[in-house]
């Protein structure tokens, strides 16, 4: 572990990236400490997934630099990265009918080094990860038979089995019902609080961002428009301008955090007038 208290778990500076001629990231800077849960929020195509891919080291050809625990991610071997960092992608493919337990055990891959087989300790880690995700009863089933929600929990369990110090989540909750959404982010929060795991998550659900993220980066067209404490970023003016959609923002009476509800277009005009009126009277 790093003894330096100041050292960021992840530090990205000056990231620019092009897909062909299309520039998708413009000078992104981002910093993540151990124990933080940081959200990437922004419309489709704003660059959230690209940032996660660059940080996890699977995309190169960008300018700028990503450091994981002080080292340039492109100079680390894949195995070194995978021992520290796990990623839960939006969707996963499964080529062959491995059982759920076998898939979760694959999370031990980077830790096995020269061994061909998982030890008992590895199997326990995998079973614990499954249990933590409420998926233990799925263990013997072929992964291809599962529903997309069940699969996503298995993929999350696999990431846990990697025992990462950095956890990247790319819309992990898209296919999940509210119970499992909360469950996954509860686990992520526990990892951050108990083990000092640094969590970086792209998410569309602004209320999940509001509830779980300490810090949010608001992205639009590959630029960071704003970043800061979640309640300072998820505001009416920020969200309406970034998403070009009218939203109703209030304080969640239970948590005291921002509550965000998108409005249908025929409600939007009426709401806009009230909000703008309120802004004028506030100023």
């Amino acid at each position: 572990m790093e003894s330096n208290v100041d050292s960021a778990a992840v530090e990205a500076t000056g990231l620019c990236f092009k897909y062909g001629q299309r520039k998708v990231l413009h000078d992104i800077a981002l910093r993540l400490k151990h124990g933080d849960i940081v959200g990437l929020v922004g419309p489709n195509g704003s660059g959230k997934s690209t940032i996660l891919k660059i940080i996890s080291g699977i995309l190169d050809g960008y300018t700028g630099c990503v450091r994981i625990a002080g080292r340039d991610v492109l100079e680390m071997s894949r195995r070194e990265v995978a021992c520290r960092l796990a990623m839960v992608p939006q969707e996963s493919v499964f080529g062959f009918p491995f059982s759920v337990l076998e898939v979760v055990l694959m999370g031990r891959h980077p830790h096995l080094a020269g061994q061909a087989f998982e030890s008992r300790a590895d199997i326990k880690i995998a079973n614990d990860a499954l249990a933590r995700c409420g998926a233990l009863e799925l263990a013997p089933r072929p992964i291809q038979e599962l529903s997309s929600g069940e699969r996503q929990r298995v993929v999350f369990a696999r990431a846990l089995a990697q025992q990462p110090q950095i956890l990247l989540l790319d819309e992990p909750a898209s296919f999940l019902d509210i119970r499992h959404q909360v469950e996954i982010y509860d686990i992520a929060r526990d990892l951050a609080l108990e083990q000092g795991c640094a969590v970086l998550t792209a998410l569309h659900d602004l209320n999940l961002a509001s509830e779980y993220c300490d810090h949010v980066y608001l992205l639009s067209s590959g630029r960071v428009l704003a970043d800061g404490a979640t309640s300072e970023i998820l505001t009416y003016s920020n969200l309406t301008s970034v998403f070009s959609t009218e939203v109703y923002v209030d304080i969640n009476k239970v948590t005291g955090k921002p509550l965000v509800v998108p409005l249908s277009s025929h409600l939007a005009n009426r709401h806009k007038q009230t909000c703008e009126g309120r802004f004028r009277s506030n100023n």
């Binding site: 080291g57 699977i58 894949r78 990265v81 992608p89 493919v93 694959m106 061909a116």
Partner: peptide, 22 residues
């Protein structure tokens, strides 16, 4: 490379995330 092939069943990106030099 057997274990790498197992990981590769999760797709090339999936295998990279598990530390495979794909």
């Amino acid at each position: 490379m057997s274990r790498d092939y197992n990981a590769l069943s999760l797709g090339e990106e999936g295998a990279m995330h598990l530390g495979v030099d794909v």
